[in-house]
Design a protein around this nucleic acid. Structure first.
Lengths: 148, 148
DNA sequence: TCCGACACTCTCCTTCTGGTGAGTATAAAT
DNA sequence: ATTTATACTCACCAGAAGGAGAGTGTCGGA
Protein backbone atom coordinates (compact mmCIF):
# COMPACT_ATOMS: atom_id res chain seq x y z
CA UNK A 1 0.00 0.00 0.00
CA UNK A 2 2.15 2.81 -1.20
CA UNK A 3 0.52 5.98 -0.16
CA UNK A 4 1.11 8.07 -3.17
CA UNK A 5 -0.58 11.12 -1.74
CA UNK A 6 0.79 11.95 1.66
CA UNK A 7 -0.57 15.42 1.81
CA UNK A 8 -4.28 15.76 1.93
CA UNK A 9 -4.85 19.39 1.51
CA UNK A 10 -7.12 20.72 4.22
CA UNK A 11 -7.54 24.17 2.77
CA UNK A 12 -10.81 24.82 1.00
CA UNK A 13 -9.18 26.62 -1.87
CA UNK A 14 -5.60 25.92 -2.47
CA UNK A 15 -3.31 23.62 -4.36
CA UNK A 16 -4.42 22.96 -7.87
CA UNK A 17 -2.15 20.33 -9.19
CA UNK A 18 -1.88 16.98 -7.57
CA UNK A 19 -0.47 15.20 -10.52
CA UNK A 20 -0.36 11.90 -8.75
CA UNK A 21 -3.01 9.58 -10.00
CA UNK A 22 -4.46 6.65 -8.21
CA UNK A 23 -3.65 5.41 -4.79
CA UNK A 24 -1.10 2.71 -4.26
CA UNK A 25 -2.13 -0.87 -4.61
CA UNK A 26 -0.35 -4.03 -3.76
CA UNK A 27 0.28 -4.96 -7.35
CA UNK A 28 -0.99 -3.62 -10.61
CA UNK A 29 -1.24 -7.15 -11.94
CA UNK A 30 -3.20 -8.35 -8.99
CA UNK A 31 -5.46 -5.38 -9.17
CA UNK A 32 -6.06 -5.92 -12.84
CA UNK A 33 -6.87 -9.55 -12.31
CA UNK A 34 -9.16 -8.85 -9.43
CA UNK A 35 -11.13 -6.29 -11.37
CA UNK A 36 -11.24 -8.45 -14.34
CA UNK A 37 -12.22 -11.43 -12.41
CA UNK A 38 -14.78 -9.85 -10.18
CA UNK A 39 -16.24 -8.16 -13.17
CA UNK A 40 -16.54 -11.53 -14.76
CA UNK A 41 -17.76 -13.59 -11.89
CA UNK A 42 -20.17 -10.95 -10.81
CA UNK A 43 -21.76 -11.62 -14.12
CA UNK A 44 -25.20 -12.98 -13.62
CA UNK A 45 -24.71 -16.01 -15.78
CA UNK A 46 -21.30 -16.98 -14.49
CA UNK A 47 -22.57 -16.91 -10.96
CA UNK A 48 -25.52 -19.07 -11.81
CA UNK A 49 -23.42 -21.60 -13.67
CA UNK A 50 -20.87 -21.69 -10.90
CA UNK A 51 -23.51 -22.40 -8.34
CA UNK A 52 -25.25 -24.92 -10.49
CA UNK A 53 -22.11 -26.90 -11.15
CA UNK A 54 -21.09 -26.68 -7.53
CA UNK A 55 -24.40 -28.15 -6.57
CA UNK A 56 -24.84 -30.75 -9.25
CA UNK A 57 -21.31 -31.74 -10.05
CA UNK A 58 -21.39 -32.50 -13.76
CA UNK A 59 -23.85 -31.23 -16.28
CA UNK A 60 -24.36 -31.14 -20.00
CA UNK A 61 -24.94 -28.05 -22.09
CA UNK A 62 -28.67 -28.39 -22.44
CA UNK A 63 -29.10 -29.45 -18.86
CA UNK A 64 -27.56 -26.21 -17.72
CA UNK A 65 -29.65 -24.31 -20.22
CA UNK A 66 -32.81 -25.92 -18.96
CA UNK A 67 -31.97 -25.53 -15.30
CA UNK A 68 -31.27 -21.85 -15.67
CA UNK A 69 -34.20 -21.52 -17.97
CA UNK A 70 -33.82 -17.98 -19.18
CA UNK A 71 -30.36 -17.99 -20.66
CA UNK A 72 -29.82 -17.84 -24.40
CA UNK A 73 -27.59 -20.36 -26.08
CA UNK A 74 -25.23 -17.65 -27.08
CA UNK A 75 -24.76 -16.44 -23.54
CA UNK A 76 -24.40 -19.91 -22.15
CA UNK A 77 -21.75 -20.80 -24.69
CA UNK A 78 -19.98 -17.55 -24.04
CA UNK A 79 -20.10 -17.97 -20.30
CA UNK A 80 -18.86 -21.54 -20.37
CA UNK A 81 -16.04 -20.68 -22.76
CA UNK A 82 -14.94 -17.86 -20.55
CA UNK A 83 -14.98 -20.09 -17.50
CA UNK A 84 -13.07 -22.75 -19.35
CA UNK A 85 -10.55 -20.22 -20.49
CA UNK A 86 -10.00 -19.08 -16.93
CA UNK A 87 -9.61 -22.63 -15.74
CA UNK A 88 -12.80 -22.67 -13.72
CA UNK A 89 -14.50 -25.51 -15.57
CA UNK A 90 -13.45 -28.53 -17.51
CA UNK A 91 -15.15 -29.28 -20.78
CA UNK A 92 -15.31 -32.86 -21.86
CA UNK A 93 -16.45 -33.76 -25.32
CA UNK A 94 -17.70 -37.27 -25.98
CA UNK A 95 -17.48 -38.02 -29.68
CA UNK A 96 -20.79 -39.80 -29.79
CA UNK A 97 -23.47 -39.55 -32.36
CA UNK A 98 -25.56 -36.78 -30.92
CA UNK A 99 -22.86 -34.52 -29.54
CA UNK A 100 -22.37 -34.80 -25.83
CA UNK A 101 -20.39 -32.29 -23.84
CA UNK A 102 -20.04 -32.30 -20.10
CA UNK A 103 -18.98 -29.53 -17.82
CA UNK A 104 -17.67 -29.69 -14.28
CA UNK A 105 -15.80 -27.39 -11.96
CA UNK A 106 -12.08 -27.54 -11.49
CA UNK A 107 -10.51 -27.12 -8.07
CA UNK A 108 -9.95 -23.52 -9.00
CA UNK A 109 -13.62 -23.12 -9.78
CA UNK A 110 -14.65 -24.64 -6.51
CA UNK A 111 -12.24 -22.48 -4.56
CA UNK A 112 -13.63 -19.41 -6.25
CA UNK A 113 -17.06 -20.47 -5.20
CA UNK A 114 -15.87 -20.70 -1.64
CA UNK A 115 -14.22 -17.31 -1.81
CA UNK A 116 -17.44 -15.79 -2.99
CA UNK A 117 -19.20 -17.41 -0.13
CA UNK A 118 -18.14 -14.52 2.06
CA UNK A 119 -19.87 -12.04 -0.14
CA UNK A 120 -22.87 -14.25 -0.39
CA UNK A 121 -23.11 -14.47 3.36
CA UNK A 122 -22.67 -10.74 3.69
CA UNK A 123 -25.51 -10.20 1.28
CA UNK A 124 -27.83 -12.51 3.13
CA UNK A 125 -26.93 -10.96 6.44
CA UNK A 126 -27.31 -7.41 5.29
CA UNK A 127 -30.29 -7.89 3.06
CA UNK A 128 -32.51 -5.92 5.35
CA UNK A 129 -29.96 -3.23 6.05
CA UNK A 130 -29.57 -2.49 2.37
CA UNK A 131 -33.28 -2.50 1.75
CA UNK A 132 -33.81 -0.19 4.71
CA UNK A 133 -31.14 2.14 3.43
CA UNK A 134 -32.80 2.26 0.06
CA UNK A 135 -36.18 2.99 1.49
CA UNK A 136 -34.74 5.68 3.72
CA UNK A 137 -32.90 7.23 0.82
CA UNK A 138 -35.95 7.19 -1.38
CA UNK A 139 -38.06 8.76 1.33
CA UNK A 140 -35.45 11.41 2.08
CA UNK A 141 -35.14 12.29 -1.57
CA UNK A 142 -38.86 12.59 -1.96
CA UNK A 143 -39.26 14.43 1.30
CA UNK A 144 -36.87 17.25 0.65
CA UNK A 145 -36.44 18.01 -2.98
CA UNK A 146 -35.55 21.67 -2.55
CA UNK A 147 -34.93 21.95 1.14
CA UNK A 148 -32.08 24.41 0.76
CA UNK B 1 -38.91 -23.80 -31.05
CA UNK B 2 -36.23 -22.17 -29.12
CA UNK B 3 -38.63 -20.69 -26.66
CA UNK B 4 -41.74 -22.08 -25.17
CA UNK B 5 -40.51 -25.55 -24.45
CA UNK B 6 -42.37 -26.43 -21.31
CA UNK B 7 -41.97 -30.11 -21.74
CA UNK B 8 -38.89 -31.21 -19.96
CA UNK B 9 -37.19 -34.08 -21.57
CA UNK B 10 -37.49 -37.06 -19.23
CA UNK B 11 -34.26 -38.78 -20.08
CA UNK B 12 -32.19 -37.33 -22.91
CA UNK B 13 -29.18 -39.55 -23.14
CA UNK B 14 -27.29 -40.93 -20.28
CA UNK B 15 -27.40 -39.19 -16.97
CA UNK B 16 -24.23 -38.54 -15.12
CA UNK B 17 -26.00 -38.26 -11.86
CA UNK B 18 -29.44 -36.87 -11.70
CA UNK B 19 -30.18 -36.69 -8.06
CA UNK B 20 -32.32 -33.65 -7.62
CA UNK B 21 -34.64 -32.25 -10.25
CA UNK B 22 -34.54 -28.49 -10.14
CA UNK B 23 -35.35 -25.81 -7.60
CA UNK B 24 -32.79 -25.75 -4.84
CA UNK B 25 -32.80 -22.00 -4.23
CA UNK B 26 -32.60 -20.75 -0.71
CA UNK B 27 -34.77 -17.74 -1.33
CA UNK B 28 -35.71 -15.93 -4.47
CA UNK B 29 -35.50 -12.61 -2.67
CA UNK B 30 -32.11 -13.31 -1.26
CA UNK B 31 -30.90 -14.52 -4.58
CA UNK B 32 -32.19 -11.44 -6.33
CA UNK B 33 -30.56 -9.13 -3.85
CA UNK B 34 -27.31 -10.98 -3.99
CA UNK B 35 -27.16 -10.77 -7.74
CA UNK B 36 -28.13 -7.20 -7.70
CA UNK B 37 -25.71 -6.31 -5.07
CA UNK B 38 -22.77 -8.26 -6.31
CA UNK B 39 -23.40 -6.88 -9.74
CA UNK B 40 -23.22 -3.45 -8.25
CA UNK B 41 -20.28 -3.82 -5.97
CA UNK B 42 -18.30 -5.70 -8.53
CA UNK B 43 -18.43 -2.53 -10.53
CA UNK B 44 -14.96 -1.25 -11.15
CA UNK B 45 -15.59 2.21 -9.77
CA UNK B 46 -17.50 1.09 -6.71
CA UNK B 47 -14.67 -1.20 -5.76
CA UNK B 48 -12.09 1.51 -6.19
CA UNK B 49 -14.09 4.00 -4.15
CA UNK B 50 -14.74 1.44 -1.46
CA UNK B 51 -11.07 0.69 -1.13
CA UNK B 52 -10.08 4.31 -1.24
CA UNK B 53 -12.46 5.31 1.50
CA UNK B 54 -11.50 2.32 3.58
CA UNK B 55 -7.91 3.39 3.36
CA UNK B 56 -8.25 7.14 3.72
CA UNK B 57 -11.30 7.48 5.91
CA UNK B 58 -12.94 10.65 4.70
CA UNK B 59 -12.53 12.27 1.30
CA UNK B 60 -14.04 15.01 -0.77
CA UNK B 61 -15.44 14.64 -4.25
CA UNK B 62 -12.48 16.03 -6.12
CA UNK B 63 -10.02 14.24 -3.90
CA UNK B 64 -11.56 10.93 -4.89
CA UNK B 65 -11.62 12.01 -8.49
CA UNK B 66 -7.96 12.90 -8.41
CA UNK B 67 -6.91 9.79 -6.55
CA UNK B 68 -8.63 7.51 -8.96
CA UNK B 69 -7.45 9.65 -11.81
CA UNK B 70 -9.32 8.12 -14.70
CA UNK B 71 -12.91 8.36 -13.58
CA UNK B 72 -15.25 10.84 -15.17
CA UNK B 73 -17.29 13.15 -13.00
CA UNK B 74 -20.42 11.55 -14.23
CA UNK B 75 -19.31 8.10 -13.17
CA UNK B 76 -18.04 9.28 -9.83
CA UNK B 77 -21.27 11.04 -9.01
CA UNK B 78 -23.23 8.05 -10.14
CA UNK B 79 -21.13 5.64 -8.14
CA UNK B 80 -21.25 7.69 -4.98
CA UNK B 81 -24.99 8.19 -5.24
CA UNK B 82 -25.51 4.50 -5.67
CA UNK B 83 -23.35 3.74 -2.68
CA UNK B 84 -25.14 6.33 -0.62
CA UNK B 85 -28.46 4.90 -1.66
CA UNK B 86 -27.37 1.47 -0.58
CA UNK B 87 -26.17 2.77 2.75
CA UNK B 88 -22.51 2.14 2.06
CA UNK B 89 -21.31 5.72 2.38
CA UNK B 90 -22.40 8.83 4.21
CA UNK B 91 -22.47 12.08 2.33
CA UNK B 92 -21.97 15.23 4.34
CA UNK B 93 -22.56 18.60 2.77
CA UNK B 94 -20.96 21.64 4.33
CA UNK B 95 -22.86 24.74 3.24
CA UNK B 96 -19.76 26.84 2.76
CA UNK B 97 -18.95 29.19 -0.02
CA UNK B 98 -17.14 26.85 -2.36
CA UNK B 99 -19.25 23.74 -1.93
CA UNK B 100 -17.69 21.11 0.25
CA UNK B 101 -18.96 17.55 0.37
CA UNK B 102 -17.33 14.77 2.30
CA UNK B 103 -17.77 11.05 1.90
CA UNK B 104 -16.99 8.28 4.33
CA UNK B 105 -17.93 4.65 4.73
CA UNK B 106 -20.71 3.44 6.97
CA UNK B 107 -20.33 0.31 9.04
CA UNK B 108 -22.17 -1.47 6.29
CA UNK B 109 -19.67 -0.23 3.77
CA UNK B 110 -16.77 -1.35 5.86
CA UNK B 111 -18.26 -4.77 6.41
CA UNK B 112 -18.74 -5.16 2.69
CA UNK B 113 -15.11 -4.33 2.20
CA UNK B 114 -14.21 -7.07 4.62
CA UNK B 115 -16.46 -9.54 2.88
CA UNK B 116 -14.76 -8.82 -0.40
CA UNK B 117 -11.44 -9.43 1.20
CA UNK B 118 -11.91 -13.13 0.63
CA UNK B 119 -12.20 -12.62 -3.07
CA UNK B 120 -9.16 -10.39 -3.12
CA UNK B 121 -7.16 -13.00 -1.32
CA UNK B 122 -8.37 -15.65 -3.70
CA UNK B 123 -7.36 -13.52 -6.64
CA UNK B 124 -3.91 -12.89 -5.27
CA UNK B 125 -3.42 -16.50 -4.49
CA UNK B 126 -4.67 -17.78 -7.80
CA UNK B 127 -3.32 -15.10 -10.03
CA UNK B 128 -0.82 -17.42 -11.57
CA UNK B 129 -3.23 -20.29 -11.90
CA UNK B 130 -5.65 -18.18 -13.88
CA UNK B 131 -2.95 -16.77 -16.08
CA UNK B 132 -1.59 -20.22 -16.72
CA UNK B 133 -5.03 -21.46 -17.59
CA UNK B 134 -5.46 -18.64 -20.05
CA UNK B 135 -2.16 -19.26 -21.68
CA UNK B 136 -2.87 -22.96 -21.91
CA UNK B 137 -6.27 -22.32 -23.39
CA UNK B 138 -4.91 -19.87 -25.92
CA UNK B 139 -2.21 -22.29 -26.94
CA UNK B 140 -4.63 -25.18 -27.20
CA UNK B 141 -7.01 -23.16 -29.32
CA UNK B 142 -4.26 -22.06 -31.64
CA UNK B 143 -2.74 -25.52 -31.74
CA UNK B 144 -5.79 -27.40 -32.88
CA UNK B 145 -8.00 -25.39 -35.11
CA UNK B 146 -9.22 -28.35 -37.12
CA UNK B 147 -8.31 -31.28 -34.99
CA UNK B 148 -11.10 -33.52 -36.19
C1' DT C 1 -13.38 42.78 -14.10
C1' DC C 2 -12.68 38.23 -15.15
C1' DC C 3 -11.06 33.75 -13.95
C1' DG C 4 -10.83 29.59 -11.29
C1' DA C 5 -12.48 26.31 -7.78
C1' DC C 6 -16.09 23.21 -6.06
C1' DA C 7 -19.61 19.76 -6.82
C1' DC C 8 -22.25 18.72 -9.43
C1' DT C 9 -25.96 18.17 -13.81
C1' DC C 10 -27.03 17.70 -18.65
C1' DT C 11 -26.51 16.64 -23.35
C1' DC C 12 -24.43 14.12 -26.95
C1' DC C 13 -21.86 10.22 -28.91
C1' DT C 14 -19.55 5.90 -29.19
C1' DT C 15 -18.88 1.35 -27.65
C1' DC C 16 -20.35 -2.82 -25.57
C1' DT C 17 -23.70 -6.20 -24.07
C1' DG C 18 -27.11 -9.41 -24.61
C1' DG C 19 -31.14 -11.34 -27.02
C1' DT C 20 -33.39 -13.44 -31.35
C1' DG C 21 -33.49 -16.40 -34.82
C1' DA C 22 -31.39 -18.90 -38.33
C1' DG C 23 -28.04 -22.30 -39.92
C1' DT C 24 -24.90 -26.84 -39.46
C1' DA C 25 -23.69 -31.83 -39.08
C1' DT C 26 -25.16 -36.46 -38.04
C1' DA C 27 -27.61 -40.51 -36.99
C1' DA C 28 -31.44 -42.67 -34.79
C1' DA C 29 -36.36 -42.71 -34.72
C1' DT C 30 -40.83 -42.32 -37.25
C1' DA D 1 -38.04 -38.98 -46.45
C1' DT D 2 -38.82 -36.22 -42.67
C1' DT D 3 -38.31 -35.10 -37.99
C1' DT D 4 -35.71 -34.75 -33.65
C1' DA D 5 -31.98 -33.92 -30.53
C1' DT D 6 -27.38 -32.06 -29.49
C1' DA D 7 -24.10 -28.36 -29.20
C1' DC D 8 -22.92 -25.14 -31.04
C1' DT D 9 -21.74 -20.61 -34.60
C1' DC D 10 -23.08 -16.49 -37.06
C1' DA D 11 -25.47 -12.22 -38.47
C1' DC D 12 -28.32 -8.69 -36.92
C1' DC D 13 -30.36 -5.36 -33.76
C1' DA D 14 -31.91 -2.79 -29.64
C1' DG D 15 -30.73 -0.83 -25.46
C1' DA D 16 -27.49 0.24 -21.87
C1' DA D 17 -23.01 1.74 -20.21
C1' DG D 18 -19.70 5.02 -20.04
C1' DG D 19 -16.76 8.99 -21.65
C1' DA D 20 -16.27 14.05 -23.29
C1' DG D 21 -17.31 18.40 -22.65
C1' DA D 22 -20.17 22.30 -21.62
C1' DG D 23 -23.18 24.70 -18.22
C1' DT D 24 -24.47 26.37 -13.14
C1' DG D 25 -23.89 29.52 -9.01
C1' DT D 26 -21.12 31.94 -5.91
C1' DC D 27 -17.03 34.00 -4.07
C1' DG D 28 -12.13 35.08 -3.37
C1' DG D 29 -7.98 36.33 -5.79
C1' DA D 30 -5.29 38.49 -9.79
Amino acid sequence: MTTAVPKVDPAPIASTHDSEPIAGDTDPRVEALVHDLIGRVADKWTMLVLELLEEKGTLRFTQIARLIGSISQKMLTQTLRQMERDGLVIRTVHPVVPPKVEYRLTDLGRSLGSAFCGVWIWAEKNLDAVEDARRAFAKASAGEPAAC
